[in-house]
Nucleic acid binder design. Structure first.
Lengths: 207, 207, 207, 207
DNA sequence: AATGAATGAGGATTCATTCAT
DNA sequence: GATGAATGAATCCTCATTCAT
């Protein structure tokens, strides 16, 4: 269907991207060589001219996934809350643009089709986000920017929870529907309120 | 494992439970008739004396899943925050006892192997939890028990986020590891702090 | 469903008859141990208390078939045309009463499910009919009762053809429908006309 | 038999033909994917690169069957008796060349393995023959070419009976054996005698 | 760079049959 | 005499993968 005889690197990219897409829409069992080939406009056997195995395709898909997720990390050199705000904003924006992608991140489909090494890489991506969030929060705490009546880890959970909510990647239909009502800025503002209120009662605004 | 000749109802239960287990450990593609049968100590063809199809097995697994999740809903007739606390506590406890189960709830593996009807049932279970949380929070808000500077939906995200965190069902290894440090009570206490602080600065303790 | 705990010989008969019935209605592939057992009102395993194997069941079914077909052979000691008329009449009557049975005779379903020996037996039943017809016709010819411008074998074909037609056992729907319009007597009368007309032009009635 | 790597359309034809053959020799239960594949010289899974399902294979087999049977219908534009003679001749010739084929037509094996739609198609083929014969006979009768002392339908039965006999497709071994003694022309001549004699005693030859 | 025909290892499922109860 | 739970072999079919063209 699609253009034939593409240069190899482009084909590779196309195949990996397609795999990612199929995985997020049709799930683990929908990801067959035939399904990929069909969408790419190629016969299934031809996939293996570009990749040694299906696992290799998934591996490349993880590359793409890694890259997309990596782009959402903020520029260094700003305060921790600003950094978090930026990550939050980018992630939610990405989720709106490519809902399947983020859903994929939070499902375990990718890890299921990937080999052990691939699964580890996916986990690393997720881990990196969490670590980043934890670091910024720890930093912020040290700087007195976030509340100290609650362990940092709980704040991490809060951030990931609100992020997931605002991104609309939950499995609960109602969560998904309502997520659409929030723009990234509004959601972040609420999140900031949750994070910054201190036991002494001073609100972040009064700082 | 290799107990032979079990009474049928017991075998059914065993098969459904095993399917649930395999699904949470090995994933969608690991859930083969052979795999189930092997763990149960039976030949694969024998499964179909107990269930009409693999889908029927998954259906029964969803029954089990529904039942287990259903048990975590609190007794009615208490205040909204107490109700949430109880749900929280029960869920975290369940997650600790059967980590795979809760992970399953938050992944979409079950929905992937279930037919359309099965998927709807799983979604309903998840939805029910979210709805319950949202209802209690709305109630609590109306009673002035939770902060009003943040939309209820964000509080819902917060609760699910902290719940997920405390339950240790995340895909991020570090989140998982650290979750173990929190007992349900401590985690809930933190969550309550997040929820109840009001704009006027009064802390929940001073209530 | 049916009465339980039947005396063995009766059960045997019942099973064989049921097998015959299923075979004629549902065909070769419908004849499964389960299907038989179900209609008999027994669990499938129980069949093998009465028969050593499915083939043995089919064998017994052939017994029944043989018996039923055998009953349609006319009493000896009458003229050849009268004998043929009686066979014809009985066969058509049987076909009307139990259409599946005769259809079975002319299909090869029975031979398909029977082992080699069983198939031979079924063939023998069919053969016996044909032989009988051929013998009577040969006799009649010798006695100048049937036309001699046509080989006896062609007359055999005519008889079987008209018999099959009148019995309504053909696969052609229109043949089946129209067969119902003929009563055995009328059909035989026509057949007799076909058989008896002689080259000299004298009709059988003028004999 | 073991030719590998055939062009797809040829393989398709081969598979369909083989299915037809197996069906006529080994019967419904012999028609397994394995059996077909083996005779074709291919592994069973490979069949399904050429056909979507076994039913599709049978469907293609019916195509072949339809085509072969269709070829035996005579050219239009001749008198009814000549048309019948031609059909008769072609059918008997086909039966001699491919005995299994005609036997298949008269058994119900094909209808048993075909789905509902396939069965209907097979019936249509049979029906078409019968209808053709009936039409020609009706026409002939109107033209005074066939006897009028016997209902047309009985003549239809006679034709099909003699056809079946001459074709040697009966289940009775002796019928089969003797059929070989008749050449199509001789058999048709006899059949014509049966059909054309009139009540007034005039033989067809004296016409 | 791609196809077209094939394969082998499994996948779910059916079915005749066994045998302890 | 019958059941209830099991089995093993076979069935149709899918899928990743190969390789000659």
């Amino acid at each position: 269907m699609l253009a034939k005889r593409l240069p190899a690197p482009e084909r590779r990219r196309q195949i990996a991207a397609t795999a990612l897409e199929i995985l997020s829409t049709d799930g683990v069992r929908g990801l067959t060589a035939r399904a990929i080939a069909e969408r790419v406009g190629v016969k299934d056997g031809s996939l293996f001219r570009h990749f040694a195995s299906k696992e290799a395709i998934v591996d490349a898909a993880i590359d793409a996934f890694e890259a997309l997720m990596g782009e959402t990390f903020p520029e260094p050199g700003q305060g921790p809350l600003a950094a978090l705000a930026e990550l939050f904003h980018r992630r939610v924006t990405l989720a709106r643009a490519r809902p399947e992608l983020l859903r994929l991140a939070l499902s375990d489909r990718l890890t299921e089709v990937a080999g052990a090494r691939g699964a580890a890489r996916v986990h690393a991506v997720v881990e990196r986000s969490v670590t980043f969030i934890r670091e910024q929060l720890t930093l912020a705490r040290r700087q007195g920017l976030v509340r100290d009546d609650v362990p940092v880890e709980v704040l991490v959970w809060t951030v990931t929870g609100v992020l997931r909510g605002a991104a609309g990647t939950s499995h609960a239909p109602s969560l998904r529907r309502r997520a659409a009502r929030f723009d990234p800025a509004g959601a972040w503002h609420s999140l900031e309120l949750l994070l910054t209120q201190r036991t002494d009662g001073s609100s972040p605004e009064t700082r």
